[in-house]
Design a protein around this nucleic acid. Structure first.
Lengths: 260, 260
DNA sequence: CTGTGTGAAATTATTCACAGCC
DNA sequence: GGCTGTGAATAATTTCACACAG
């Protein structure tokens, strides 16, 4: 996450495993839906199904928070909503600033999912002077020059970067200098930040690439089963290494059809 | 991932750990940047820094692909770009369809990062008849009624769902029925899919919630160090359980100031 | 010498399975 | 009797550290 050396573990927080933290929002979403339907209690099995995980994992996750269930009965929905919200820090209001109001930035500004969960879009910032003043999602866009002031005035500690990749690091540095300590980065760049600043990234094309990997694998298996030739595609000339040596990659340099 | 029982591990694919697959796109991005700067070779240390991971992990990751480096020298950039691209299935063209052309769908349609890496937006689909024909990012929006035909005509195997949550499962079912086997889901819903279909999700508000968790933790530590009181916020009345029993949650029911 | 490739160790995450409480 | 909470078992991932190829 951070750039600096890892002195302390930092992988856990208050004893709650990172993997568990990442699932709490999932549980919270499922619980909120139940709450809206006025369901009073739910079993680990039901809730797990609604959240798309298995029940053992869910129970283990909850065990890190405390004993909030009732044996033989299940969990009190409202109570659990509150406990998870508190654990995630959602009982307070988090003003966020979005920097880079292009298509994606505007889409995020309009995204209802933020407001619904304790996050408030406090400011929109863009480097284009022409945009200054134009309201997006009802919020006037402000110019990058005022970034510092905007961050402090609004008490923003979470910044969202939706700039082009070339501008991301600079924006990041300015956000951090202004006091932001958590960054959600949509720009396809690795950001370096000082110790103590958290960065999470969302990279749309990475997600697709992971899907493509599995998709390709399925196609291969299918072909193996069917006897159908893989849709060879138009392989570009595979680059050969400057110093050809004995490689041992699974398929080697030649575009073969199937591995073992 | 899939709904059905897990007969086979499914966590690995062709022997490459899932965690490694998830990082390959990162390495590829860093390598592509080097390639554009005509850098001929790179060491694991340098590449790791550029990708934001540590070098031991990178070398271990590459070891699953084969021995593509040269001891004492490093990795041939072009060669590695090709090998990783091939491994990820990016030497072929993947037509994707985006369903739900609201703010986010439109932003994705306009997102340059897709085209740059083997993905082609082959179709935009929306349920609103008024949108039919309107071009978004130069591609005419088509109506959901024709979803089936659009998917097969374009040979789409990867679908992107950017509909409101209520419509997501239905759209997902139709995509799967039409032959889509990989789905990137932006709707904040758990999708159930038959075995053999991969789903990856991107949930913007979940990412923020994870940041908020860590942010809250920082605030706590700071307060502990400063002696400054936490900005107590306006705690809503914490719900009390129907049957009050001896809880053992770290902070209990009362809004306390600091944990141990 | 330098920097890869990789067994072995350490850490983290998931799953099992069942005692204990309601 | 049903369902939570959790130690113990298993699996996955990361990190270490060093042999050895170039």
């Amino acid at each position: 996450m951070a750039t600096g050396r890892t002195h302390r573990p930092a992988t856990r927080s208050r004893g709650i495993p990172e993997a568990t933290v990442a699932r709490l929002p999932l549980y919270l979403r499922a619980l909120t839906a139940l709450s809206e339907r006025s369901v009073p209690t739910v079993s680990s099995e039901e809730l797990a199904a609604a959240a798309g995980v298995n029940s053992a994992k869910l129970r283990k996750d909850f065990s890190y928070l405390g004993s909030y269930g009732t044996r033989g009965v299940g969990y009190d929905v409202e109570y659990l909503v509150y406990q998870i919200s508190r654990e995630l820090g959602l009982t307070q209001d988090w003003p966020v600033a979005i920097v880079g109001i292009g298509n994606l930035g505007a889409a995020l500004a309009n995204y209802g999912g933020f407001a619904s969960r304790g996050f408030r879009v406090a400011a929109l910032i863009d480097a284009d002077p022409a945009m200054a003043g134009t309201p997006v999602a009802g919020i006037p866009v402000q110019h990058t020059d005022d970034l510092d002031r905007i961050i402090s005035d609004n008490g923003v500690s979470i910044g969202v970067i939706t700039t082009p990749p070339g501008a991301a690091q600079q924006v990041c540095d300015r956000l951090v200098a202004a006091g932001v300590t958590s960054i959600l980065n949509f720009a396809p760049t690795v950001l370096s930040v000082p110790d103590g600043v958290d960065v999470r990234k969302v990279d749309l094309s990475i997600e697709l690439q992971i899907l493509a990997f599995h998709e390709q694998r399925k196609a291969g298996e299918e072909a193996a089963a069917d006897g159908t030739a893989a849709p060879a595609a138009d392989e570009p000339a595979p680059p050969v290494r400057a110093t050809p040596t004995n490689r041992k990659g699974p398929e080697g340099d030649m575009p073969a059809v199937m591995p073992a």
